[in-house]
């Protein structure tokens, strides 16, 4: 057991070093960052509008309910009784909270969801070569004469990719904060970080893992890229569930299930849905890992 752990540590260290020197890790992270930046540029910050101004706060704990607005004409902030038009525009779950921040947070959620799809596509394509690369360099002949178990080998390959990817993504997440704040204004930081934790990181683990495992048996780099392409439908399939998880609560506020929820409740339910989708996707990926491991054992040395 301690031997396997030492081997895993060694694989993580050197596979990471090689991924870094091949520039593949750097390219992946830069690509993610550029993706974030581009989406940020193209996304407008649309104020939650009412006639004549931006709605900042709706208080329905008082009767009659009041609305606080910044008037477009003068920039002046005023509070006045809310009329019906405002109350239909601002559903229950958006009342009694800082609307500017909520607005910015929902913008972030939309943006990160789109970036998640980009990430999945990119990782499906870029991670596939991980194992075929050993054949490409013709070191696999050597590797298979070492006392490295099949599970250790697969595990080491996966973990090395994941460790590098996750470290790079965490950096991305942190570096992106000031950019996003500059564009969208202050947002709910805990929701932002949770989105990375529950959506982007698991999506990266899923897509890279799926691609590495699915391409484990092919012999050339080119074939591995084809495998990555062939996995696109799976990636899009998972993404559709992410989209549903994110937007159903928003659109669904007309539904009975969501009408009673507060803003926090809604965000929590959204994150719960995303988390569930990611959990299922990753379990399916790990199941594939088990299959690959089993097939590898059967075919070993033929």
């Amino acid at each position: 057991m301690s031997l396997q752990l030492a081997q895993l540590r060694g694989m993580i260290k050197y596979e990471l070093l090689m991924a870094w020197r091949r520039r593949s890790l750097l390219v992946t992270i830069l690509f993610l960052f550029v993706g974030l930046a581009v989406f940020t540029m193209t996304m407008q910050k649309e104020p939650l509008g009412a006639e004549g101004g931006e709605v900042l706060y709706v208080d329905d704990t008082v009767t009659p309910a009041t609305v606080t607005m910044r008037l477009y004409a003068t920039g002046e902030v005023t509070t006045m009784p809310a009329d019906d038009a405002v109350l239909t525009n601002i559903p229950n779950w958006l009342r009694n909270i800082d609307l500017q921040q909520a607005n910015a947070t929902l913008k972030m959620a939309t943006l990160l969801t789109l970036v998640t799809q980009l990430l999945i596509i990119m990782l499906l394509l870029m991670s596939a070569e991980t194992i075929p690369l050993d054949k490409h360099y013709r070191v696999n002949e050597l590797l298979h004469t070492l006392p490295v178990g099949r599970a250790t080998y697969l595990g080491g390959k996966l973990l090395a990719v994941w460790v590098g990817l996750l470290a790079g993504m965490v950096m991305c997440a942190l570096l992106y904060i000031p950019i996003a704040q500059g564009r969208f204004g202050a947002f709910d930081m805990s929701a932002y970080l949770r989105l990375w934790g529950v959506m982007l990181l698991p999506a990266a683990v899923f897509a890279s893992g799926l691609s590495i495992l699915a391409a484990a048996g092919v012999a050339t780099r080119r074939a591995s890229v084809l495998i990555g392409l062939a996995l696109m439908p799976a990636g899009i399939f998972v993404f559709v569930f992410v989209i549903l998880a994110v937007f159903t609560p928003l659109v669904g506020t007309a539904n009975a299930a969501y009408t009673s929820l507060s803003y926090d409740g809604l965000i929590n339910s959204m994150f719960g849905n995303i988390g569930q989708t990611m959990l299922i996707a990753n379990l399916a990926m790990l199941l594939l890992g088990l299959v690959v491991w089993g097939v590898g054992r059967l075919r070993e040395g033929q």
Partner: peptide
Amino acid sequence: KANLGYLPQELGLYPNL
């Protein structure tokens, strides 16, 4: 394998190490 050293006829190495 734990007691084996092997030099294959067609040897490949990791180019970036």
